[in-house]
């Protein structure tokens, strides 16, 4: 029996390591071109005409889902969104069955956001189409790392030897993990900064410098990436209060003074104003937070183009 699995010769994007450095450079080049498209009157190219992309989101997400949706539509693909609230997930269907049912409708790519690490990787083994990891637990968020790379690359021209600090809840952050992998691939020097309770045990395996002092983390940095802190972590006993967290780990204008004068401030969003980032810093001249969002669409267009543009060899 001919199955969709047999025909599938495409590929997946589950983690940064699925891409070579050359491919990432190609994605950057392509994303810049798609950024141009997004700035035109007609923000659309016919590249993925006739392709179907399903956004399967098991966690609430505005930014990533919308970003993938716009990216797909600007490539002329048909994009369908399925979120837990409107699917059979709430009726108790297993993840496998949901993926197989979507796969049976023959999409060309499924973008999966899931709270469980490895869920997209498992889906990739059964879906018979490209699977793109839209964020899985604390494991990986490769398209976020790629759009962050683009944002840095656009401003700095190169990532090599840049000093980058990632500040916040490293333990639970897929954004941190994917960014560390991508930044290290291009020779950046990465420091992570968090209270010890928000760093993974075995953090040395990540190949980064570690500090618990935000001034030390920010000093002489070219790029400072802030991560969102969730109040849920407080209930887990990982820190006593938002006020105390903020006192030690908030990026304020004062703390920022020790960074390089041309420092770039990034945040994957949504930001907690006054908690991990001071309002004036978030809105300040160094902030690239909205630029990241713009690049999100362009980079996801590049990723969809790479994965869905031509599956038959």
């Amino acid at each position: 029996m001919e199955t969709v699995e047999k025909k599938f010769r495409g590929r997946h994007l589950l983690q940064i390591a699925d891409l070579t450095a050359d491919e990432i450079m190609g994605l950057l080049n392509t994303a810049y071109k798609f950024k141009d498209v997004s700035e035109r009157e007609i923000k659309k190219v016919p590249t993925l005409r006739g392709k179907t992309i399903v956004n399967l989101f098991y966690e609430p997400s505005t930014r990533t889902r919308t970003s993938f949706e716009i990216a797909g539509k600007r490539l002329s693909a048909d994009v369908i969104n399925i979120s837990t609230s409107s699917s059979s997930v709430t009726k108790g269907e297993t993840f496998k069955d949901t993926v197989l049912n979507i796969a049976a409708m023959r999409p060309d790519a499924i973008v999966i956001r899931h709270g469980s690490p490895g869920a997209p990787a498992y889906a990739a083994t059964i879906a018979g189409c490209s699977v793109i990891n839209g964020g899985d637990g604390a494991n990986a968020h490769p398209t976020q790392a790629l759009l962050d790379l683009m944002t840095i690359h656009e401003k700095k021209g190169s990532v090599e030897n840049l000093k980058v600090a990632i500040v916040g809840d490293i333990l639970h952050s897929r954004v941190a993990r994917s960014n560390i992998n991508a930044l290290k691939m291009f020779g950046a020097d990465v420091t992570v900064c968090a209270p010890p309770t928000l760093l993974p045990h075995g953090v040395n395996a990540l190949g980064v410098k570690v500090t618990h002092n935000i001034r030390e983390a920010v000093a002489d940095k070219d790029v400072v990436m802030m991560l969102r802190i969730q109040t849920e972590r407080m209930q887990q006993g990982l820190f006593p209060s938002l006020r105390e967290y903020s006192e030690h780990f908030c990026l304020s204008a004062k703390v920022l003074k020790s960074a390089r004068p041309d420092v770039l401030i990034m945040h994957p969003g949504p930001i907690n104003r006054g908690v991990e980032i001071a309002s004036d810093v978030a809105d300040g001249p160094y902030s690239l937070i909205l630029s990241q969002v713009t690049h999100g669409v362009a980079m996801r267009m590049a990723v969809l183009y790479l994965l869905c543009g031509g599956a038959e060899s």
Binding site: E23, G26, L27, N29, T30, K33, V37, V45, P46, T47, L75, A302, Y305, L306, G309, G310, A311, E312, S313
Partner: peptide, 16 residues
Amino acid sequence: TFYRDDIQSKGPDLNA
């Protein structure tokens, strides 16, 4: 690059 009709057979080209 993004307007070609042979993307399906030739595959994506990241050198646009």
